[in-house]
Design a protein around this nucleic acid. Structure first.
Length: 536
RNA sequence: GCUCCGGUGGUGUAGUCCGGUCAAGCAUAGGGGCCUCUCGAGCCCCAGACCCGGGUUCAAAUCCCGGCCGGAGCACCA
């Protein structure tokens, strides 16, 4: 019997897909239709256990958000919306030494822009956070929890110097403070709060296991003294909770069901679970995701600060920087960012992405809407001869979308001559005697090429299977300065002329320079346009 | 060193929990073609992957064991 089953299964397994499908049909088995929908994200673990899914992003206001933060924002946001839950923005501001008010604002602004774009691009609505929380507001509440920990014998005040603690934690040695009485600990804790100890002299630590294989679990510090004004509370507090403590209490108290953070916090899961258990607080899902680094670009603020201070970078919005500001200023649409990170997914693997991948998304979004303009870098004068009275070119705003309109450029000839500019790059490719087409204007035959001037003869033809180049009239054009980011420390400025009406652009518009690439209008002064090159 | 986490086409990702619908999906980059008065976009087609070795099983990307490679943490910072 078993042998028979074996034989039959083997036989079936040998069949190819076609005959299996035929067989299925014969037997009346209905194949489940493969769903052709947009790629879905993997489900949230244990989602059914919660009535409402609550996620959050918890940035520390210690700098301008970068590309690296976008995943940390979008992962919880997307899940919250996918599950019709709530998304919180929480400022993790418990280290006043590095936090500043301007960073709170920068984070609100930048994240706001991205979430709005997420609503547009992915249809995840509403494209904003449901509630903002300032963690430091809850410090008094955290003091209460600290007290409870001490009273239950789960925490003690330690006055060992840093180096001793470091050594003890490495070696797994318990110090004498560990066995202090509850009363003694309460007394010392009050002293921490009332200023009897200076910064660094006393710490409240969790009593766990000094020989735990996971070293973050060896009596982690949960409160310390910081003698530095807080950007919001000034001198109100001198004792601040540490990361593991504040995050656990806050997540539990604000109803978070799924807490996302980057993978480096993996070892802290155990610490946080322990804190929750000791405090009798609600447990929730802790999910780690892989870090994102950009090929060739450091993401650390520490690295950029001196470059900004020394003027090598113009500020936190320098288009060479991977800050969100910098990237937007460069002309990357926030929708491109959103789409990119959506496709990236919430995976736990660390990834190195290339800016080219982001550029590809941006092109996809910009191409259908960006108005086209002719731009002639490094212009060289071209003199056209044998021109009838007038040449006219109707330039479409967007060749694939005639409804966007067109503009007319007319060139009047003087004694049969017309002057215009072409780019020296194009000129290099031209040969004397060659017929070329000036885009949408006329065909010409190159007569002579000199170092700073080229002459050509008008050809009454519409042939388009010749080389097509771009031009601007010599009589009227817009001076253009194009800033091309190369790396964090370098850039190139390309000067040239643009079509006459480029002077009417406004700051923030993103255009396509035909045959050149996308660029964003950064500023306009006295009719001259400054562009920042986005990408090809 | 210790602890933890990963490894699917060039790149990124889905699938791994609960083995069969996966001779593996999607995107991007690559090749070819069509279209186009942009070297852009669009459309069509092509090619390309389960880290290695054992094991379990009728059946393994999926489970087990061993190895290799990569990353992170080991701050009284988050």
């Amino acid at each position: 019997m078993i042998e028979d089953v074996k034989r039959v299964v083997e036989e079936v397994n040998r069949l190819d897909k076609g005959s299996l499908e035929g067989l299925a049909e014969e037997l009346g088995v209905v194949l489940e239709e493969r769903r052709e929908e947009e790629r879905r994200w993997p489900p949230l673990p244990n989602a059914d256990a919660y009535e409402v899914i609550v996620t959050r992003m918890a940035p520390e206001p210690n700098g301008y958000p970068t590309l690296g933060h976008v995943k940390g924002l979008l992962v919880p946001f997307i899940y919250a919306r996918l599950y019709k839950g709530k998304f919180l923005l929480r400022f993790e501001d418990t280290n006043p030494r590095v936090e500043k008010l301007e960073y709170y604002d920068a984070i609100r602004q930048e994240l706001g822009i991205i979430l709005e774009a997420a609503e547009e691009e992915l249809g995840l609505s509403p494209g904003k956070w449901d509630k903002e929380i300032i963690e430091s507001n809850d410090i008094p509440k955290m003091y209460e929890y600290a007290k409870k920990l001490i009273e239950d014998g789960n925490a003690y005040v330690c006055t060992c110097p840093v180096l001793v603690v470091r050594k003890n934690r490495n070696l797994g040695i318990e110090c004498e403070h560990r066995d202090q009485s509850v009363d003694k600990n309460l007394e010392l804790w009050e002293m921490m709060l009332d200023g009897s100890f200076k910064e660094g002299e006393a710490h409240l630590r969790l009593k766990t296991d000094m020989r735990h294989p996971n070293r973050t679990m060896r009596d982690p510090g949960i409160f310390r003294i910081v003698e530095h004004p807080h950007p919001i509370h000034g001198d109100r507090f001198r004792v601040y909770p540490n990361y593991d403590f504040s995050i656990s209490v806050e997540d539990a108290l604000t109803g978070v069901t799924h807490a996302h953070r980057s993978k480096e916090f993996e070892p802290h899961v155990e610490v946080q679970r322990t804190i929750l258990r000791m405090l009798g607080l609600r447990q929730y899902e802790m999910i780690q995701f892989g870090r994102v680094t950009v090929e060739g670009i450091p993401l650390s603020k520490r690295y950029f600060r001196p470059l900004i201070a020394s003027g090598i970078l113009s500020g936190w919005d320098d288009p060479r920087l991977p800050t969100i500001r910098g990237i937007l200023r460069r002309g990357i649409s926030p929708r491109a960012l959103v789409r990119f990170f959506y496709d990236l997914g919430p995976s736990k693997a660390d990834v190195t992405i290339s800016m080219n991948a982001i550029f590809a998304e941006n092109r996809r979004i910009l191409d259908p809407v960006a108005p086209r303009f002719m731009f002639v870098p490094n212009p060289i004068k071209m003199i056209l001869m044998d021109v009838p009275d007038e040449l006219e070119a109707d330039i479409p705003v967007h060749p694939s979308r005639p409804e966007m309109g067109e503009r007319r450029i007319s060139l009047k000839s003087k004694d049969g001559k017309v002057e215009l500019y072409i780019s020296s790059q194009d000129l290099q490719e031209l040969k004397e005697g060659e017929e070329v087409r000036l885009w949408r204007l006329a065909n010409v035959r190159i007569r002579s090429i000199l170092a700073d001037e080229v002459t050509a003869r008008y050809v009454p033809s519409m042939k388009t299977d010749v080389r097509i180049i771009h031009w601007v009239p010599a009589e009227k054009f817009t001076p253009v300065k194009l800033f091309r980011p190369i790396s964090v420390y370098s850039y190139e400025v390309v000067g040239g002329y643009g079509e006459p009406n480029m002077g009417k652009l406004s700051v923030g518009e993103i255009v396509q320079l035909v045959r050149y690439g996308f660029a964003r209008v950064d500023s306009i002064k006295e009719g001259a346009v400054s562009l920042i090159f986005s990408h090809e």
